[in-house]
């Protein structure tokens, strides 16, 4: 009883302060919810407007001639053949360098490396590289590939551009490889080694095939990022006007190059409306290529997930 009488003044005080005001709070809740929905759809709306706008202004310029013609000073007869081939060549060079090096590093870090200083340094380094702006990679490529290794790469060439892009997407491929390897159950490794296989034999014949779809998905996504990159290529020295597609030879690798994003950039920065229309046409082609790549990555991922 004494306890009760002691508490009651406090209780009364609390009661006076206790003002749930549920109506007002619920109203604020609804406002907050509405705003967050609007924010979510703002991004989607902008994406839709962008895509529709580009389709409207670019569809009229799409034709067979537009694909196979070289660029020109007259927008009516200009085409995208050299930059399109340039982008495909860059894609191949980038993949040839970034895929083995990235997957190899991923395997090394996940399967072979002990928890030592080198592994830790590589790990911190990779997450650091992810935040470095792509234009800085361009400066690296300009200095190292185009200048120091000029006798090998031929200066501001296709090879320099491809190598720069390979360095740019290397961290992405390494991270994707490590995640894919981590998803492979340990029992597989244990079984392989219990049969007397070395670590590498186990990885090559059992772990890697299991992880390959995941690695491929990550690599395709990384490559699709690479072919949309403009800034590092401009810095390495892509030319804005190249009338011929590069030759398929060592000399072709060392020749000056252009790529789809560079061509788009060059056309958008001209004042005439005619060039803006064909820029939109080139964007449609570039986005279609990206769509095919992303679509195949998603298809691979789904196939892989349903198999498990």
């Amino acid at each position: 009883m004494t306890v009760n009488s002691e508490q009651s003044p406090q209780l009364q005080e609390t009661k006076a302060n206790f003002n749930p005001n549920l109506k007002g709070r619920y109203r604020f809740d609804r406002v907050f919810k509405t705003i967050s929905w609007i924010a979510t759809f703002a991004g989607i709306v902008v994406l839709t407007v962008l895509l529709i706008g580009i389709l409207v202004s670019g569809l009229s310029s799409l034709s067979f001639d537009f694909i196979v013609n070289p660029p020109s000073r007259k927008p009516e007869i200009a085409g995208i053949w050299p930059p399109l081939i340039g982008t495909i060549c860059l894609l191949v060079i980038t993949a040839l360098f970034a895929f083995p090096v990235g997957v190899g590093s991923g395997i090394f870090l996940e399967e072979f490396s002990e928890d030592n200083l080198f592994a830790k340094a590589v790990e911190i380094n990779i997450s650091n590289l992810a935040a470095v702006p792509s234009i800085i990679y361009g400066l690296l490529g300009l200095f190292v590939f185009a200048r120091i290794f000029e006798p090998v790469t031929g200066g501001r060439s296709l090879l320099s551009g491809g190598l720069t892009l390979a360095l740019l997407i290397l961290p992405v491929i390494i991270v994707a490889t490590r995640e894919a390897l981590r998803a492979v159950p340990d029992s597989l490794r244990l079984a392989g080694m219990a049969l007397g296989a070395t670590r590498w034999q186990t990885v090559r014949s059992h772990v890697l095939p299991q992880a390959l779809p995941g690695i491929m998905t990550g690599t395709i996504l990384a490559l699709s990022r690479a072919i949309g990159e403009t800034a590092p290529l401009i810095v390495v020295g892509a030319a804005t006007f190249v009338p011929f597609a590069p030759e398929l030879s060592i000399k072709g690798l060392q020749s000056s190059f252009t790529a789809m994003p560079i061509q788009i950039f060059s056309w958008v920065s001209r004042p005439q409306d005619g060039f803006h229309e064909i820029a939109a046409g080139a964007i449609i082609v570039l986005m279609l290529v990206l769509l095919v790549m992303n679509g195949s990555a998603i298809w691979l991922r789904n196939k892989f997930q349903s198999n498990r």
Binding site: G43, G53, I54, S224, F265, L286
Partner: peptide, 21 residues
Amino acid sequence: PALEILAGVPTVVFGYFALLM
């Protein structure tokens, strides 16, 4: 995934969007 598409749009396309639209 829709947001991821937005992330995958090349920045030169965003540049076109900003300057011309």
